[in-house]
Design a protein around this nucleic acid. Structure first.
Lengths: 122, 122
DNA sequence: ACATCATACTGTGTTATACATAGTATATGT
DNA sequence: ACATATACTATGTATAACACAGTATGATGT
């Protein structure tokens, strides 16, 4: 069942990228609903049932701060990076870049046709 | 406890990259012990307690095939990508690239100084 | 001959979290 | 009045790297 395997592996891949992407978007403050749209605009579909618990958890971990504000007759919860969050984001970006370099390096040495196609597109 | 958070988030990030990197290295057949060294040479430290179960799981999922062979007086288990494995690897690479593009795109639009430093280094 | 290290691998419980699913409240459009 | 969009909260399930422990055996050092 290759497609099922791919789905699981794809989820694993998303897990790491998701946090980096969400933190990256919160250099400027956003509330959940528009953050979800921003992520979608940049190619990352994320269900609200996944996004809100993630935001909550990142706040608990001290990487985000939030405050309620009423705008356009609606109560919205705005999130933004903390100083610690900016620092962690930098570190995670470094990890992401390092993993990317490792993968490319391995592909260059061991990936046959795949190495060529990847290099060509970058 | 930022450093503890970073460790957990780093693990999440690794989860996706790890499978891609291992599959990429197995275009040519390797046995576990040298595969571990190859990964280390390319910047990915992975404990044997993590690598062997991963290889086992990927074989069960049909992405790898293995066979025992005696070399230099030792029994070694050689692994290599199957046709399905090559296909899944391509798809995962595409997912990885898409996530990377999304992150860069978000950084470009929302990341302040970080956006500049990342662009400069690439 | 024996101790130590390197090689080569197997087994399994713990921990963490996206996902899936369900839900509430309220403003706006038809 | 009803449907849809906006904006969010709550929680159990499924998954897998890690951490840790272990076995077997060849090579090397004393």
């Amino acid at each position: 069942m290759s497609s099922e395997n791919f789905d699981n592996l794809r989820l694993e891949l998303r897990r790491g990228g998701l946090v980096v992407a969400v933190l990256a978007a919160l250099h400027s403050e956003q509330y959940g609903y528009t953050l979800r749209k921003i992520m979608a605009d940049h190619g990352i579909e994320i269900d609200e049932g996944t996004l809100y618990p993630l935001l909550r958890r990142l706040e608990i971990q001290g990487l985000l701060k939030s405050k309620w504000r009423e705008e356009q007759k609606r109560n919205k919860r705005f999130y933004q990076l903390t100083a610690a969050g900016k620092q962690i984001l930098q570190q995670l970006l470094t990890e992401w870049r390092n993993m990317d370099s490792s993968i490319n390096s391995i592909l260059k040495e061991y990936g046959h046709a795949t190495s060529r196609t990847v290099s060509a597109s970058r």
